[in-house]
């Protein structure tokens, strides 16, 4: 990096512009959540939040609209779904990456390429057959049906494979001479050594799980399984009847958990994406 004594105004203006671009919509939603729904619908919304209206948040959290769940319930569903998807994906991906990196078995490359090709088949593409399979298992409107089909992940598998490939052979061999079998090596050496990558992956996958829309919409029609993302969409009905302030308050709430996860894991996240823990 080039360091000059004075502040680089051009660079800072560009950075500030970038920040504004990201923050402004969020700010508008927050400001909108504290104002009158009718004002918003008419289009004369102020960008200054009306702080006396902050009570809307507790009301949104706990009071359900008719036929819907309160926001806290939907957030629990989303949170559970994101967690299960993130952990499930990490578990499955570590296992498959472990297999294709450290073991020799028949059709290994075929397995690897099969996993690779599924990159081109995200849930949205195979949604009809996947739904049919879930229906066949009687998993429509269940938490299992909501989460399991989203778990397999070629991206995470490939990322872990890259991480594992960077591990020196001698480390594996040292563990072998120390008497560590495959599972023990995975648990005692591989996972701790890849901890930073795991954390980074967890953040990415948690946000992925949290933001799911298409699949939950299709597979879970039972309101008790409504995620927060679905919930927001359901709240937007006929233009005149939509309580925009409540929608916006819910949106703000929906943004919080991913932000918290990113902030909490930030140090690990950056480390895992940049340095490769060695």
């Amino acid at each position: 990096m080039i360091r000059t004594g004075k502040v680089d105004w051009v660079a800072h203006s560009i950075l500030l512009l970038g920040v504004a671009l990201f923050v402004l919509p969020v700010w508008l939603v927050f400001a909108g959540s504290t104002q009158d729904s009718a004002d918003i619908a008419r289009g004369d919304m102020s960008i200054v939040p009306n702080l006396s209206q902050l009570g809307i948040y507790s009301s949104v959290l706990t009071e359900a609209a008719p036929g819907a769940q309160p926001v806290w319930r939907m957030m629990m569903v989303s949170f559970g779904m994101a967690l299960v998807i993130a952990f499930g994906k990490i578990f499955i991906s570590i296992m498959s990456a472990y297999a294709v990196t450290f073991f020799r078995f028949p059709f290994k490359m075929l397995c690897f390429w099969t996993i690779f090709i599924t990159l081109m088949l995200p849930v949205e593409v195979r949604i009809v057959p996947t739904f049919k399979v879930m229906a066949g298992f009687n998993l429509i409107n269940t938490f299992t049906g909501l989460t399991v089909p989203l778990m397999a992940s070629a991206t995470a598998t490939l990322l872990f494979r890259q991480t594992f490939l960077a591990i020196p052979d001698e480390l594996v061999e040292a563990a072998r001479t120390d008497g560590a079998g495959p599972l023990r090596f995975l648990k005692d050496i591989l996972v701790p050594v890849s901890a930073a990558n795991l954390a980074a992956m967890f953040v990415i996958l948690f946000v992925y799980g949290w933001n799911q829309y298409m699949w939950p919409l299709l597979v879970a029609t039972d309101p008790r399984l409504d995620t927060i993302v679905i919930g927001i969409v359901k709240m937007i009905g006929h233009e005149a009847l939509t309580e925009w302030n409540r929608v916006m308050a819910t949106a703000v709430l929906a943004m919080l958990p991913p932000v918290v996860v990113v902030v909490l894991m930030q140090r690990w996240f950056v480390k895992g994406l940049t340095e490769g823990d060695k």
Binding site: P168, E170, E173, T177, I189, K278
Partner: peptide, 18 residues
């Protein structure tokens, strides 16, 4: 390897980093 009662010292040490 573990059953052979043989210990190896590697050139790059191969210590467990964590």
């Amino acid at each position: 390897p573990a059953q052979r009662d043989i210990a190896m010292v590697f050139q790059n040490y191969a210590l467990y980093p964590h």
